[in-house]
Simulated assay, not measured.
Amino acid sequence: MIPSLISRALMAGLAFWIAGSGVQATTLDKVSFGTNWVAEAEHGGFYQAVADGTYKSYGLDVTIVPGGPNVNNRIQLVAGKLDFFMSANTLQSFDAVTNKVPVVAVAAIFQKDPQVFLAHPESKVTNLEGLKPLTLFVSKEGMPTYFQWLKSEYGFNEDQVKPYTSNPQPFLADKKSAMQGYVTSEPFAIEKRAKFKPTVVLLADYGFSSYSTLIETRTDFAEKKADLVQRFVDASIIGWYNYLYGNNKPGNALIKKNNPEMTDELLAYSVEAMKRYGIVDSGDTLKNGIGAMSDDRMADFFNKMVKAGVTPRDIDYRKAYTLRFVNKGIGTNLHPTR
C-alpha cells in the first residue's frame, strides 16, 4: 500500500507541475493534408512523417486525405475543409493568381517536374530534339500546358500529336512514337508489360523549370497560423529526407495500407528514380534543403509560360508563393553525403 501511495503522490505532483508550468503533455495541433492522388511513393515523405512520428515531434496530429480520380482536394482546401494541399505544379499556383483563388505555395518538394516522354529503343532517341520525328501521345491536360512550351521553345508541332488516354497500347504498337508519363511510374509499367526499357526524356532537364508537388495552403491561414505552417513544412521536409535516405519501411507500410494495390517493387523503383533524376533533392536543395524555392526560378518559369501563351502576362505571379517557410537548410544534415 505504501508504494502505491507514493506513486499516486508522485503522479499528482507531476500533474500539478505540468498544469502550473503551462506545459501540455499530449495536446497536438490537428492538421489535415490533402494529396492529389492515391497513396504512392511520390507522396512518401508525408506518409513517412506520419508513420515515424516526425509530425508528432513537431506538435502535429496530421491526417493525410488521399486524392483520386473522383476527388478534388484543392476545392476542399479553398473551402476550409483541409489545411494543406499537395499541388501538382507551379502552373496551378499561377492559375490561382489569375483566378483570384486565395491560396499560396509554401514549399516545393519536387525540384524537377517528373513529366517525361518515353520512346522505343529502336527509335534511337537520345535527347528532346530526337522526339520531333515521332508521333507523340499527349493527354488533354498536357496539350494546353507543357506542350505549348515545347512549341514555343523547341518548335514542336501539334500535327505530330495523338491523344493519350492512359492506355499504353497505341505507343507499344508504334515504334515510331513516344508517350508521356511520369519518370517515377510509367517507365516501370512499360518495362513490366512490354519487357523492354524505354528511353526516358525528362522535360525538366531541357528547361521546363516548373516546381512540382508543392505544399499549398490558404493565404490567410499562412498569415494567421505561421507557426503551425512552419512546423508542418519543417516536419514534411524531415519526412522526405528520412523517406529517401533513411529507413522508409514505416512510410511504405502506411502507403500500402492506404493503397492496397501498391507493390513493394513499384515503391522501390519510384524512390530510386526520384534519387537518380534529382526529382526531390537537387539544385537549390543541396544548400537550402528539400522544399527550396527561389524568386529567380519562379520568374524564369513565369516568363516561359507567358511566352508559350499559357499564363497571362499581366498577373502578379509573386502572389503565387512565399519563401517565408523554406530555404532554411532544415534536414540537410540527414543527407548521407553531407
Rank of each mutant, 00 (worst) to 15 (best):
F196W: 02
G289L: 07
F196L: 08
R231W: 01
A235N: 09
Y245L: 06
A204D: 02
A204L: 02
V233R: 03
E186P: 00
S236Q: 01
E265F: 09
P168A: 03
K197C: 00
D284E: 14
F232P: 05
N258Q: 14
V201F: 11
F171H: 05
F221D: 06
Y211M: 11
K257D: 04
G155W: 08
G207D: 05
E265K: 13
D284R: 13
I237C: 00
P168I: 10
G289C: 09
Y154D: 13
Y154L: 09
N259I: 01
T263C: 13
K256A: 12
G251E: 03
Q160I: 07
V161Y: 09
K192W: 03
D205S: 08
I290W: 00
D264G: 10
V201T: 12
R276Y: 09
K249T: 15
E186Q: 07
N247R: 05
A273V: 01
F156E: 14
A235H: 10
E191V: 07
Y245T: 01
F156H: 11
A173Y: 07
L150P: 10
A226Y: 04
S166D: 14
N167P: 08
W149A: 08
E216M: 13
Q169I: 13
T184C: 13
T219H: 09
K175P: 03
I238E: 00
F171D: 08
D227W: 04
A253Y: 06
Y211I: 13
E153M: 09
Y154K: 14
K257Y: 10
I238F: 05
I255K: 08
G251V: 10
F221H: 14
V280E: 04
S209K: 11
D281V: 04
P260R: 12
D284V: 14
N258R: 09
K195F: 00
M274F: 02
Y243S: 10
N258Y: 14
F196K: 06
K249R: 14
R193H: 04
E272H: 12
Q180R: 06
Y243L: 10
A235F: 09
E186L: 03
A292M: 08
P250Q: 01
N259D: 09
A273W: 01
P260S: 13
L286F: 09
Y241S: 05
Y277K: 13
G155N: 10
Y241C: 05
G246S: 10
E265N: 09
G291E: 00
L267I: 15
G246R: 08
E272Y: 07
P198H: 06
T285A: 13
A222F: 06
N242H: 15
E153F: 05
E191L: 06
D264N: 12
D264A: 06
N259E: 12
Y154E: 13
R193V: 04
Y241E: 02
Y241R: 06
G278L: 07
S210K: 00
K197A: 15
P163T: 02
W240A: 09
K257I: 04
V280K: 10
G246C: 08
K275D: 11
A273N: 01
L202K: 06
L172F: 14
T217R: 02
N157F: 10
Y277S: 07
K151S: 07
P168W: 02
T219Y: 11
F232E: 00
